[in-house]
Design a binder for these strands. Sequence first.
DNA 1: GTAAATTTTTGACAATTATCAAAAAAGAAA
DNA 2: TTTCTTTTTTGATAATTGTCAAAAATTTAC
Lengths: 186, 186
Amino acid sequence: MSFLSHLSSIISVSDSLQTELNSVTKQITVSKNQSIINIGHRCNDIYFVEKGLLRGYYLEEGKEITNWFAQEGEFGTCFYSFVAIKPSFETIQSLEDCILTQLPYSSLQNLYIKFPETERLGRIITETYYIKLEERLLSIQFKTAKERYQNFVLSKSSLLQRTSLGQIASYLGITQETLSRIRAEI
Amino acid sequence: MSFLSHLSSIISVSDSLQTELNSVTKQITVSKNQSIINIGHRCNDIYFVEKGLLRGYYLEEGKEITNWFAQEGEFGTCFYSFVAIKPSFETIQSLEDCILTQLPYSSLQNLYIKFPETERLGRIITETYYIKLEERLLSIQFKTAKERYQNFVLSKSSLLQRTSLGQIASYLGITQETLSRIRAEI
DNA sequence: GTAAATTTTTGACAATTATCAAAAAAGAAA
DNA sequence: TTTCTTTTTTGATAATTGTCAAAAATTTAC
């Protein structure tokens, strides 16, 4: 699903805003295993995944901890860095060849001013991602490793073939050895 | 800090919006240990805490798991129920006598339409809460129980005297016995 | 196609945290 | 105060998950 049709599925997007969006966004292609943003740098853009798969990860005692995956039709960015204008604590990496729609922070802020309907889009999208994050927090807080994995299989089955065991394990907050054993016993 | 001055600290709020806010919100007082919203019911309002302390909790195998605290100057609601218009999975309870500013869902939706600046407020507030939630997720995912408690002491010290050990423990994703032992050894 | 590198699996063991039960302490009510 | 109720602490034990190490399997690169 393209960026514009994704937005249009949330609220109706005026022609003038569509035109403006086309002019301020950039379609970029990124090949597999590239780092788009590195830890410590400002994440100045939000990326909408047209095709491919992104992940965000941070380092904890030298190990990569996957914080999120963004597949087709989803946004990827270091939210904290982007919104708070601070250095990113995570690296954004392409797990596949990607086509991304890139929207810079300053363009978004201009859109917010020039097209108030964008505020509504921003609010609704943020609300949606908040609810997803809350769900994940509850799952990590009081489900066993096995339950979390089973839930992942149900809700993100499309990622099973596209990501490594280690990436999924750290996303679920468990070690890869434990996830390997969970897989073996199911 | 009052509801209006809290909003004004985010963006400048027009006089007409201030007037409207005064007319659509209601100041309510709630005595200690009351359930404002119960699990299974729609949470139709968002509450701004003028005075006192709220918490949201859900049940996991019969046990109360604290999902959030809202103290003076913070919002409390079952975000999922409020935004998605679904039954609440959590109960909102007053931990102290409270003065709350109550804003109903329908009034907020009207404000979004009538005063576009409200959209900006809604977006920015949601962004802020998203970042806090993400921080909490990272903390739960890869910190030990002791580290999480120490972080709680640093960032929420004002709650230490106002909440019970069991409430804090479940908020941190640990049992109260474990938290009691952590406290003993520090 | 073969070698090298990476990822996954398996084993042995350790650490953290949970569970269950009961005692102690603190707070609320009469 | 005195009793009752709730919360917190402590002890013994169990379960879950992590750590370290090495082997097996898979993927990548030449």
